[in-house]
Amino acid sequence: MTTLSVLDLVPVRSDQTSADAVRAGLSLARAADALGYERFWVAEHHNMPAVAATNPPVLIAMIAAATERIRVGSGGVMLPNHAPLVVAEQFALLEAAHPGRIDLGIGRAPGTDPVTSWALRHGAGGVSDDAVTQFPQYVDDIVAMMDTQGVGLSLRGRTHLLRATPRAVGVPTLWLLGSSDYSATLAAEKGLPYVFAHHFSGQGTAEALRLYRSRFQPSPELAEPRTFLTVNASVAATAEEALRLAQPQLHMMLALRTGQPLEAQVLVEEAEKRELRVDEQQLVDSMAERWVIGDAATGRARIEELATTYGVDEVMVNAVGGAYLGTDPAASPAREETLRLLAG
């Protein structure tokens, strides 16, 4: 079977606090570790009522400490929000603490609204909006600073040795993430592994992967193209149950796509009480068609179909199953069940 991995946004339900959501995420990571999943990545989003994944390095440290063998990483760190040296230092330390288990996935999007983006980049004297245009250089800077030998920094006529951590013996695997041709081209030019955010848009995946593969230039880190895709999944005992559990996430994505106010992820019963307009229901149905929704056999078959269609040997699952009224706030049983059923 195709190698399976996990993407987690650490969703926050209407019955959860942030602490509950983090505990549920840690439980999901332990389940993925026990089930043999390859890697577990956490996203970076800010000021969103339904997402607790605001700080990937902090979450990665907790998840890596709570698991034994699974690779843990960022999907991804939104680099324009951060100084490259800070990112290099964070992930160099994570690699030192958990050697051979850390992935650094980097993205270019803000991961938030314009006001929060301004606060991230300017509120504490941080990086400027120019960081977006400087993104290719910042990627190079992180690679150089995490190198075990460090990098020479020229400043005022003198060269200073700069290391992300004093005595590294290994470096995290660096991935470029994106949902457009830009990141595909950049990853190809730099000879880096690349992941297209298929779970977010569901469109343009084939074109982006074709562009990446056709323009790939071998590098010291990577001799040939390396990629996988991400997909939203809700898998349950029956197809009907899986679709029912997917409704809270589908409604949240509907709000995001149509500019409605965002809120914590509703419970299944709350979603079922909502009456959607015809156009809203059509958008929900269109999104659901691109997700993996069904029973175990259907879900596994769909994963294999996606892997074959896009020529990848790994698929990263964003388990989106919601929760029923009365579910333990510190647990996400439907999401864990999706991982169990897909693992076979």
Rank of each mutant, 00 (worst) to 15 (best):
E207W: 08
S286I: 01
A288K: 09
G150S: 06
L85N: 03
S14I: 00
L177F: 10
P329I: 04
A50T: 00
L254M: 12
S179N: 12
A334S: 15
V22S: 07
A246F: 13
R274V: 10
Q281K: 09
A296C: 10
E269V: 07
A31D: 13
F91I: 02
E189C: 00
R71E: 10
V278L: 14
G157W: 07
H98S: 13
A334D: 04
V268Y: 14
D113Y: 10
L9H: 14
A29G: 05
N81P: 07
A31Q: 08
A124L: 14
R300Y: 13
R30V: 01
P220I: 07
M1F: 11
A144N: 07
A83L: 12
P99E: 08
M62P: 00
R23K: 07
G326I: 02
A83K: 08
L254Y: 14
E305C: 02
M287N: 11
A223D: 14
P11I: 00
T309N: 02
P261R: 08
T67R: 11
A92Q: 05
V72Y: 10
T2Y: 06
E304A: 15
L341M: 11
L341Y: 11
Y310Q: 01
Y324R: 14
V132K: 05
V139P: 04
D15V: 01
E263F: 12
S332Q: 12
P220G: 08
G344M: 06
T54W: 00
L341G: 08
I102G: 07
R215L: 13
E272C: 03
S27I: 00
P225T: 04
L104W: 12
A19W: 08
G76N: 04
L254K: 09
V171F: 10
L162D: 06
I303N: 06
T54R: 00
G170Y: 07
T309I: 04
D20P: 05
M48E: 08
L35P: 02
L341V: 02
A223S: 15
G126T: 06
N232I: 00
G107T: 01
V72Q: 10
G170I: 05
V315M: 05
Q90M: 08
M253I: 07
G111L: 04
A53V: 00
A301T: 10
V169G: 08
E304M: 02
M316V: 05
D15S: 01
P166H: 06
S18A: 13
G25L: 02
L177I: 05
L341C: 10
P136T: 09
A208M: 11
L161G: 12
L176S: 11
E305I: 02
T238W: 03
Q90W: 01
V86D: 09
A24Y: 10
T133L: 13
G326D: 15
G170K: 11
